[in-house]
Amino acid sequence: MTREEEQAIVRRVQDGDVNAFGDLVAAYEKNVYNLALRMTGSAQDAEDMAQEAFLKAYSSLAGFRGESKFSVWLYRIVSNVCLDFLRKKGKRQTVSLSAEDDDGEDVVLDVPDTAQSPEALLEKKLTRDAVRRGLASLPEDARQILLLREIQGLSYEEIGETLGLEAGTVKSRIFRARKKLCAFLLDDGNIPDSFSSSLSRGG
C-alpha cells in the first residue's frame, strides 16, 4: 500500500467509514502480530496485544494527522502495548519464544521451506530456534529495537520516530543488540557448526 492509499483509507475511517479500518488491519496484522509474538513469546499474548493495539489505534485515529507514516504510528502503539504488558507481567529476561497452542504445548513456528535439502533445513531451524532464545535473553529495549528493524523493516529514521530517538542512537543500539545476540549464540552452543564458526571467527 502506498502512503497516499494509506492516507486515503485513514481519512475515510476518520470520516466515519468503519469498514475501511478493516483494510488497515489486513495490511498490518501480520507485522503487528509478529512483533507482538517476538516481544511476548506467546501466541495467545500476541493475539491479545495485537487486538488491543488495533483497538487503541482505532479509537485514537481521530488524533492521527498523517505527519508520520501510519505504520510508524501503529508500531509505536504496538510497542507500548507490549512493553506495558511485559512490565506488568514482570517478565524481564527469559521469555520463551516458542508458541503455545491452546493446551500449552509448544508449537514450532517455522514455515517449512521446501526448496532446500533436509540438512540445510535442519540447520536453518536450529539457527532460528537458537536466535529466538537469544532474542528472549535480550533486555526488552534491545529486543524491541532489533525487531522493529528486522520484522517491521522500519528504517533508522522511522525507528527513531517510533521510539523518540536520534537515528544515530538507533544505529548503535541495533549494532549492540546484534553483538549481544551473537555472544549469546556462541555461549548457547546449540547452533549449526557453520554459523558457530562464523561467530567465533568474527569474535
Binding site: 501480520k30 509474538l37 513456528l109 539457527t127 520484522i151 523493516g153 562464523s198
Partner: peptide, 16 residues
C-alpha cells in the same frame, strides 16, 4: 553472522 541473524529473526513470519 549478522545476515544469518536477520534471516532467522525476520525469516518466517507467523500468520495471525
Amino acid at each position: 553472522a549478522f545476515a544469518a541473524l536477520s534471516d532467522a529473526i525476520g525469516g518466517d513470519l507467523a500468520e495471525p
